[in-house]
Amino acid sequence: MGDLKVIGGGESGFFSTKLDALLGWARKFSLFQYPFVTACCGMEFMATAGPKYDIARFGAEAPRFSPRQSDLLWVVGTISQRQAPALRRIYEQMLEPKWVMSFGTCASCGGFYDNYATVPGIDKIIPVDVYIPGCPPRPEAVLDGLMLLMSKIAAGDKTPAILKNTALPEGSDEELEKLYQIRMKGKVPVMSEE
């Protein structure tokens, strides 16, 4: 019998660390979403969910129209003061673990609606995990935000994150042209300098 190691509240042992990693891995690929879509950002949300951008690749394609069955609350669009109690209630009805995605400028900070009727950012009402800026954000930005959230889930990180601009690919003209051709799989004619 060796010394019995007591794991205190602040520490975690091998098993729980591995379990957290496993849970994080499982959770990040099975996000059941609740779309709270109120405004024009919904169009980009639909494009993201559609076949071209295909949010199903990330395991987040299943919308649940009951907050009790969902993990991820998408707040897509402007939230008015009159809607705020409903949003708060929906957030409270979701079960832990739960995450909130703030989609677009209006949800993140109120956007240009600096007036008596609009909530200046949903973080005044509910905690937000990832902010996606844009008016509205392109589907690529939304997918970036989703991948950022997935990495946060895997890491067990609950601090708010804001999506920053992704760097454009760098290189000479020939390299970029080659990259473009590879991405388009030869479906476009080669640009030549005639």
Partner: peptide, 14 residues
């Protein structure tokens, strides 16, 4: 929790 808006050097770059 920290509330938005964030400064330019804050947040979490992807």
């Amino acid at each position: 929790d920290k509330l938005g808006p964030f400064l330019a050097d804050e947040g979490m770059p992807f």
